[in-house]
Computed example of a mutant assay.
Amino acid sequence: MKRLSLPLMTAVGLMGMTALTACGSGSTDSATSASAAMTPSASSTPSPSSTLSGTVTVLAAASLTESFTALEKSFEAANPGVDVTISFGSSATLAQQIAQGAPADLYASAGTKALDQLPAEAKAKPTTTLARNVLEIATPPGNPKKVTGLASLADASINVVLCAETVPCGSAADAVLTKAAVTAHVVSREVDVKATLAKITLGEADAAIVYHSDVVAAGSKVEGVEIPAAQNTTLAYPLVRLTDTAATKAFADLLASAAGLKELEAVGFLAP
């Protein structure tokens, strides 16, 4: 199992990624291989399968880190001949990388807007909605500034951090603030949702607008303040299958399966 961290890929990074094998090879169809990928849980021990081999390269929204990592481990345990390589980052940045030629078998985005940046051939590939997500305010444990909702974020004594305007969590945050007629006291805008949440967990900000799933995944490191449905927005999480190798199809099937949804729901995602 390999792990890449790609919040922003430079030209050098793109050249490095071309060395990764974008396609896996195998002899079974996706239905057979998907059955080998068991539900990820501490109590299940998948039976190894030798029918699939190769590499599956995945570019995925940062908010999918916990769930996709767990599913990757489960899939690789069931299919020891396959190496799943996942790069997490801003959906918009990852889409730009694909448009610039970065190798990828699967692309999972937060929201659908980033898909507009994909090249025409990628837009025509099979797409499945994996889950949905909503926004939530994250504060340090104990909510020391007593943030009660979006209106609190206009207080000049409350330092607010948002995702960059060009990434899904940032444009979504701007939309809910506009809907609520709130001008937040924003002191920083970060490259993706994980970098934004880190400002809270490191004690460098008083509040941030992130995804509900990130608040759940952070556990006791943050405290969540719900945004009412009338002010909130919902983002779909599409999965685009860019190649047709057996290993790619099998991992895509796992991500879109009941087992995949269970892993996503465990960290706060909603059913599609």
Rank of each mutant, 00 (worst) to 15 (best):
A154H: 11
A151C: 02
V182C: 12
P238V: 05
L150S: 00
V147C: 08
S30P: 04
A175S: 13
A19T: 08
A266H: 13
S5R: 12
A208W: 12
V147D: 11
M1W: 02
D155I: 07
V56G: 12
N143E: 07
S87W: 11
V160A: 09
I98M: 09
L6C: 05
A110K: 07
A236T: 14
L153D: 05
S90I: 06
L177F: 00
T21I: 07
A92S: 13
S63F: 04
G219Y: 08
A175G: 06
D116I: 08
E165K: 14
A151W: 01
A184W: 02
A131H: 02
G268M: 06
V225F: 02
T85Y: 01
S157A: 10
A180P: 00
R132L: 03
A122P: 04
L4P: 02
T21Y: 04
G24L: 02
M9Q: 10
G26W: 03
G16E: 02
S87G: 15
L130Y: 02
F269Y: 15
L118A: 14
S188T: 10
S27I: 10
R189W: 04
P7I: 09
A246K: 07
V187H: 14
A36T: 09
E136C: 08
A124I: 05
E190L: 13
G111E: 00
T55C: 13
E72W: 11
A120S: 14
G101R: 08
G16S: 00
P119D: 03
P46K: 13
D244M: 01
S47C: 08
E66F: 08
V187M: 07
V12S: 15
T51G: 03
G224T: 08
L59E: 03
A138S: 14
E265V: 11
T69W: 05
T65E: 15
A131F: 01
A31H: 11
A256F: 04
A252Y: 00
T139W: 07
A42V: 12
F269H: 13
S49I: 06
A61D: 13
A138E: 12
G224H: 06
A99M: 07
R132P: 00
E226M: 00
A92D: 07
A95S: 12
G170W: 03
T10C: 08
M15W: 09
T166C: 04
A78G: 15
S53P: 09
L130P: 15
L162D: 04
I227K: 03
V176Y: 00
T51L: 10
F88W: 05
T55V: 11
A156G: 14
K199S: 13
T178G: 14
S188M: 01
A42E: 09
C23S: 12
A122W: 01
T248N: 09
T178S: 15
L94V: 11
K146S: 15
G26N: 08
V134S: 15
G101S: 10
G89L: 06
V186R: 05
E204W: 01
A205Q: 07
Q117A: 14
A258R: 07
I137R: 05
V215R: 11
A11V: 11
L270Q: 12
D253K: 12
A154G: 14
V82F: 01
S152H: 09
A110V: 05
C163E: 12
H212D: 10
P140S: 04
D29R: 13
Q231V: 00
S43W: 06
L239S: 14
A246R: 05
A120Q: 12
T51Q: 13
